[in-house]
Design a protein around this nucleic acid. Structure first.
Lengths: 338, 338
DNA sequence: TGCCATTGAGTTACCGGTAACGCAACCAAA
DNA sequence: TTTGGTTGCGTTACCGGTAACTCAATGGCA
């Protein structure tokens, strides 16, 4: 099959000519602007239908910069359910309002994000959504120079570049620390994983440590694997900390996947949960609710976060007033693993 | 903060003037085309740097239709790890080759896909990737009329619109059916879930049923929940089929998440796996490898599928020869649950 | 009846790049 | 020296829409 990459499409001018009106009138009909009669509209639409006209948004965006409906969204990666859910709700909100989402993933490498930003800005997007707390200075300068609306998601940022919509990770960690202490845990460890630079669990760990310190029960041990957070990493991270500090009575995991990995490690070794070791995660993974023991975790509103982020960006684009800092909901869910 | 949505950017003309060359020469330098001296290149690049020039791809794509670097990818949804992994590897491959990925999700509703296609085509993409076997006739006509390179992913399609890269779901199902029979299973049930129309597990079920029929052990019972496939659905679907047909000795699940839900249902009821009931899934979820019993499943190369799909599309775009039908790898992984 | 506001169009100019072509300067081979 | 190819760069003409403006016809109201 030989595909012709030539300019093939029907243009607005052809539609207009066929309908016996000017390009401008046809344009008005298609954008549903005012200034045409019902009869004219029908004539134009009939030709649109007949000729199979597909509007050319590249040309439209080019001709009147106001109308770019592209938004860029860059998350750490696309394969995790957590970010996937966020992306899904962002994309839904955007498509409902007629925006197209261009995605990117940076694998927690600020340089990859910078490259993505450079790229996306060349499409003159109506707005961009970026994630995490770490951006290169070049990234920030590029975004500022283009004066493009920005939403930073995931981590709450009280002095955002533009708008921040995120979870209060610090408070999540602190709350869980206090909870574990309240359940009588005294020697507590932490297991996390980060493939590249700073990692998305850092703020939770900070809050968690702070809570323990405040009660004079500082973190007993910490293991942050150089790996993608996941079931495996949780499994082996648990093995590591238990071998290193066999007397700990609880482990806080970076997320539920790791916590579940840890639970199964314990199960495989005959370690009783929560009798011997208490376990807590973060993120309210679905699988956590079908396993025999309900995992103590923090439920997070990823959908809510995505929706808020998209809606805040749209408001900003439209010049409507928006809150600069929006906290996405989280809630400690006591299970029976601590 | 008042964001100006005005035409702000530095244009190529300004860069060219500052560098004392023509627009065309500056354009050549930036596209790394030939026809300029090293000295000219340095002069231009210095001004690019100094003025913070960000190329305008909208204009570039508009001016010379050949150069649109947008590709569209539409999957059922973005929140599952399975599609997420595919999307991730597609996106990686594309960004390595300088393409921008615009995403869409259709939730298994062909009409949603049609709307997305209509939208994406107005961006004159270099190519599109769609998924599943069900498309509206309007979708197909639109794509054909625009003569845009297309890759259909997920389901293998032996007579594709353009290119098909997919798993051979039918064979996966058939192979698993034969395997379960070979392990002495005789009364076998199926548990699946589909939120909307046709569902992505249908072809596997067909192959599975065929294998059972061929051995005169037809499917004993089938439960397809009207729900998103997941741990919950697997849990409750298992409850349903076991209550309905308590004498079945094995269940084939639509995917691993459902199978794991089913395993935990059995565990909660004291039903021995594989003693009382054998269980098999599909998709090689990571969590399946940390639970105490290794789940019998079919490992699928989602990354490989994504990479192949992206590379095939790029080859097609470039006019290089490509196979029309590419099978992504799958492999039955015997665990100890059947 | 005369005047002005409204409606339904058309005209013109432009957005910021790139393709295609032109052309002078230079160099190597005949 | 002539010829022909290459190199380096400029000129021109668009790509397909939309903003801003203009203008004639219409109709309501004083």
């Amino acid at each position: 099959m030989s595909k012709s990459h030539k300019r093939s499409g029907v243009s607005l001018a052809e539609v207009a000519k066929a309908a016996g009106v000017s390009k401008m009138t046809a344009s008005r009909v298609l954008r549903n602007a005012s200034g045409f009669s019902a009869e004219t509209r029908d004539r134009v639409m009939r030709e649109v239908e007949r000729l199979g006209y597909v509007p050319n948004r590249i040309a439209a965006a080019f001709g009147s910069e106001q109308t770019s409906t592209i938004v860029g969204v860059c998350v750490p990666h696309l394969s995790s359910t957590l970010y996937g859910t966020v992306l899904d709700s962002i994309n839904h909100a955007f498509s409902r309002f007629g925006y197209q989402t261009i995605i990117g993933s940076h694998e927690n490498e600020p340089e990859a994000e910078e490259a993505w930003v450079r790229n996306i800005l060349s499409w003159r997007p109506a707005g961009v959504i970026i994630s995490g707390r770490t951006h290169t200075t070049a990234t920030i300068e590029l975004l500022k120079a283009q004066a493009v609306p920005i939403v930073e998601i995931w981590n709450l940022n009280t002095s955002p570049l533009d708008i921040s919509v995120g979870f209060n990770h610090y408070d999540c960690g602190r709350e869980m620390g206090q909870y574990m202490l309240s359940k009588g845990r005294r020697r507590i460890g932490y297991v996390g994983a980060e493939a590249n630079a700073p990692g998305m669990g850092a703020a939770r760990l900070e809050g968690f440590e702070e809570a323990l310190r405040a009660s004079d029960r500082p973190l007993a041990t910490k293991e942050v694997l150089i790996d993608r957070p996941g079931f495996y990493a949780g499994f082996y991270g648990t093995e590591t900390v238990l071998n290193r500090a066999g007397d700990i009575d609880a482990i806080y995991f970076q997320d539920d996947a790791m916590a579940i990995g840890g639970m199964f490690y314990c199960q495989s070794k005959g370690i009783d949960i929560p009798g011997d070791v208490g376990i807590a995660g973060w993120g309210s993974m679905e699988v956590a609710s079908v396993i025999p023991q309900r995992l103590t975790t923090t439920a997070v509103g990823t959908q809510s976060l995505g929706k808020s982020a998209a809606e805040a960006l749209i408001s900003r684009i439209r010049g409507e007033p928006v809150d600069d800092v929006i906290v996405a909901p989280t809630r400690l869910v006591p299970g029976n693993t601590v």
